[in-house]
């Protein structure tokens, strides 16, 4: 008996709830109804919103709740909204992701360590952070989706943020690289290193003028505070 009441409630429940915030509109989509039903209602509501007179463009964020959206579903939703004047989709969010995405996400957040020497012709690539306990010889390459930390001597090529992360940094115990790459930026070494040059740990990052610069390791804690994942209370002592 109660079921029937619930059903009625569901039918009358709106599949698209629009909320206005100071950043624009947020559309909360029902995650229990069918996708087609959802699209029909979304189209209707967008007609109403789009029909009103607006001075400037409105930013729209879509919150899909616990519904998993395929790439093409997201495209359909985006198109539906963007067709209307003044409406711009800034994001389509969902609480769910596939296992595959979850694994990728986890890997990208991991720090992978490797002990050994990267010799000429060898390439070591990790999706997240790389901690290399050893040297990179000339002709050897290390690549990471995020940061690269090398305890030893870097003489070869290091490519941090190799999938486009410009915030990535490269740190090495001794920096004598043949090339440094961060995201799609590249920096070549001087043709000759001076003999006694560079005996202290250094780091490389992209500065405000979009140049890869090498600096003392100490600057990192101010420039990239996110690198610290230490969550404890205080340092002891």
């Amino acid at each position: 008996m109660d079921n029937r009441g619930e059903l009625r409630a569901m039918r009358t429940k709106q599949n698209v709830v629009i909320k206005g915030t100071k950043d624009g509109l947020t559309l909360h989509l029902n995650d229990r109804c069918s996708f087609d039903e959802l699209l029909v209602e979304l189209a209707e509501k967008m007609d109403v919103v789009g029909g009103q007179e607006h001075g400037s463009a409105i930013k729209v964020t879509v919150q899909a709740g616990n519904r998993y959206l395929l790439e093409e579903d997201i495209e359909v939703i985006k198109n539906l909204i963007s067709q209307r004047r003044h409406l711009i989709v800034v994001g389509v969010k969902s609480n769910v992701m596939t296992m595959e995405e979850a694994v990728r996400w986890k890997e990208a957040g991991e720090i992978v360590s490797y002990t050994g020497r990267i010799r000429s012709g060898q390439v070591l690539e990790v999706p997240g952070d790389l901690l290399l306990i050893g040297d990179v010889n000339p002709g050897g390459t290390v690549k990471a989706g995020r940061n690269i930390f090398i305890v030893g001597l870097l003489k070869g090529i290091a490519h941090a943020g190799c999938y486009g992360d410009e915030q990535a940094v490269i740190a090495a115990g001794r920096m004598m690289p043949s090339q440094l790459r961060i995201a799609h930026y590249l920096n070549r070494a001087p043709d000759r290193y001076e003999e006694e040059e560079s005996y202290e740990a250094e780091c490389a990052y992209i500065d405000a003028s979009n140049q890869i610069v090498i600096d003392r390791l100490q600057v990192l804690q101010h420039l990239r505070p996110d690198i610290s994942t230490f969550k404890g209370g205080n340092y002891s002592g």
């Binding site: 010799r119 000429s120 012709g121 060898q122 010889n137 000339p138 002709g139 050897g140």
Partner: peptide, 12 residues
Amino acid sequence: VRDADRVIGLLE
């Protein structure tokens, strides 16, 4: 030396 390094990598 560069080539030797490559070969050592392969031998290892």
